[in-house]
């Protein structure tokens, strides 16, 4: 990378910002990779980026997880060319509902409930938010709810798998902190 010219505007960048940006970049990469996968039904996706959100939630708390999730939705949609398209709003509605549920789920007793529970609950909140927005805005007819079983099955399967992957990542010994190189 070439050296950048000194900026005239100094925006203080904290360690928090670097950390959130790194995790958000990982989540965006997974979103882009996933966009290449064929989907049997629009809206049914593995949601791999949520693994990152779950890891961040467990390690750094809800605020960071919300930043990563929302940055992922906005920047991810910019990268795949869906920004402000219907899919963007569906993803946003799903992410907001998931975050609301995760805010509650993080208070479950950790002795009994791990990342898999958080993941499955968030996945159901995700399809709930998407279906509600689709019903109110895109398909103003109760017919969308006939698809609920398919979406619920996907939420259960992918929620459980993503939760297991997140649990395994969290179970691993924490890697040596990655040095932040900001070129200065």
């Amino acid at each position: 990378m070439g050296r950048m010219t000194p900026s005239t505007i100094e925006l203080p960048v904290t360690d928090d910002d670097y950390r959130i940006a790194r995790y958000a970049a990982a989540a965006i990469a997974l979103t882009v990779a996933e966009a290449a996968l064929p989907s049997p039904l629009p809206g049914i996706k593995p949601g791999l980026a949520n693994i990152i959100v779950l890891v961040v939630l467990a390690r750094y708390g809800w605020r960071d997880a919300a930043w990563v999730s929302l940055l992922r939705v906005v920047a991810g949609s910019l990268v795949i060319g869906q920004f402000l398209a219907p899919g963007f709003f569906l993803a946003l509605a799903g992410a907001l509902c998931s975050l609301a549920v995760l805010a509650l789920a993080q208070h479950l007793p950790p002795r009994f409930f791990g990342p898999v529970s958080a993941s499955v609950l968030a996945a159901f909140a995700h399809i709930g938010g998407q279906l509600l927005l689709a019903r109110v805005w895109l398909v103003p007819h109760d017919g969308v709810f006939y698809l609920l079983p398919l979406f619920a099955t996907a939420a259960l399967v992918f929620g459980a798998i993503n939760g297991l992957v997140a649990a395994r990542l969290l179970d691993a010994p924490v890697a040596a902190p990655v040095a932040v190189k900001d070129g200065s």
């Binding site: 479950l108 007793p109 002795r111 009994f112 409930f113 791990g114 990342p115 898999v116 529970s117 499955v120 609950l121 159901f124 939420a155 259960l156 929620g159 459980a160 939760g163 297991l164 649990a167 395994r168 179970d171």
Partner: peptide, 14 residues
């Protein structure tokens, strides 16, 4: 990696 409540929740979701 699954805790007792996770099994319960998976069952309920199923």
């Amino acid at each position: 990696l699954l805790r007792p409540g996770d099994w319960l929740l998976l069952l309920a979701a199923g």
